[in-house]
Measured scan of single mutants.
Amino acid sequence: KKVIATKVLGTVKWFNVRNGYGFINRNDTKEDVFVHQTAIKKNNPRKYLRSVGDGETVEFDVVEGEKGAEAANVTGPGGVPVQGSKYAADR
């Protein structure tokens, strides 16, 4: 997939743990970017499923997906693991 931007910061608008996807609002352009659970590179080690939490600040790359921009290599700011959704089960 073609990389559009790297190391972008954004805020998770919403993320559905059961369906495994959601949207991140970019801090720079204010665009909403699709995020799939497979794009989460550093999950919270205490969580079973990969997820990001609503309102969480994340860092990610933006790539060209089939339906427009989507997030890739999602981590917390500075490459730390994401916090994850409060609806995702703990280990």
Score class of each variant (00 low, 15 high):
residue 88 A to L: 07
residue 29 T to M: 03
residue 5 A to E: 15
residue 23 F to T: 02
residue 14 W to C: 04
residue 84 G to R: 05
residue 87 Y to G: 07
residue 32 D to H: 03
residue 40 I to A: 01
residue 74 V to H: 00
residue 57 T to L: 14
residue 72 A to C: 09
residue 4 I to P: 04
residue 53 G to Q: 12
residue 48 Y to A: 09
residue 90 D to H: 12
residue 41 K to M: 15
residue 25 N to D: 03
residue 10 G to D: 01
residue 68 G to M: 04
residue 11 T to N: 12
residue 77 P to D: 03
residue 7 K to L: 05
residue 91 R to P: 07
residue 4 I to L: 09
residue 6 T to M: 13
residue 14 W to Q: 03
residue 86 K to E: 08
residue 79 G to E: 08
residue 46 R to W: 10
residue 61 D to S: 09
residue 83 Q to H: 10
residue 71 A to L: 00
residue 66 E to T: 15
residue 58 V to R: 00
residue 9 L to A: 14
residue 83 Q to L: 11
residue 68 G to K: 04
residue 58 V to Q: 00
residue 20 G to Y: 01
residue 60 F to K: 00
residue 82 V to M: 04
residue 88 A to W: 05
residue 25 N to P: 00
residue 21 Y to H: 04
residue 11 T to V: 10
residue 67 K to G: 10
residue 48 Y to W: 15
residue 12 V to T: 04
residue 47 K to T: 08
residue 79 G to S: 10
residue 47 K to E: 05
residue 67 K to E: 08
residue 70 E to D: 03
residue 36 H to K: 04
residue 9 L to C: 15
residue 27 N to H: 15
residue 82 V to C: 14
residue 26 R to Q: 04
residue 54 D to V: 11
residue 65 G to R: 09
residue 25 N to G: 06
residue 91 R to D: 09
residue 13 K to G: 04
residue 40 I to P: 00
residue 82 V to S: 04
residue 46 R to I: 14
residue 70 E to C: 13
residue 46 R to H: 13
residue 20 G to P: 00
residue 65 G to F: 04
residue 90 D to L: 10
residue 17 V to S: 08
residue 73 N to V: 04
residue 38 T to C: 09
residue 62 V to A: 03
residue 27 N to I: 10
residue 33 V to L: 13
residue 18 R to Q: 13
residue 1 K to L: 04
residue 63 V to T: 08
residue 64 E to T: 12
residue 34 F to Q: 02
residue 11 T to C: 11
residue 44 N to G: 12
residue 27 N to T: 14
residue 24 I to T: 00
residue 43 N to D: 08
residue 49 L to E: 04
residue 23 F to N: 02
residue 72 A to I: 14
residue 84 G to F: 06
residue 56 E to P: 02
residue 60 F to A: 01
residue 44 N to T: 09
residue 28 D to K: 02
residue 63 V to Q: 07
residue 11 T to L: 06
residue 91 R to G: 09
residue 59 E to D: 02
residue 87 Y to Q: 11
residue 29 T to V: 06
residue 26 R to A: 03
residue 47 K to Y: 08
residue 44 N to S: 10
residue 76 G to A: 08
residue 47 K to N: 14
residue 38 T to F: 07
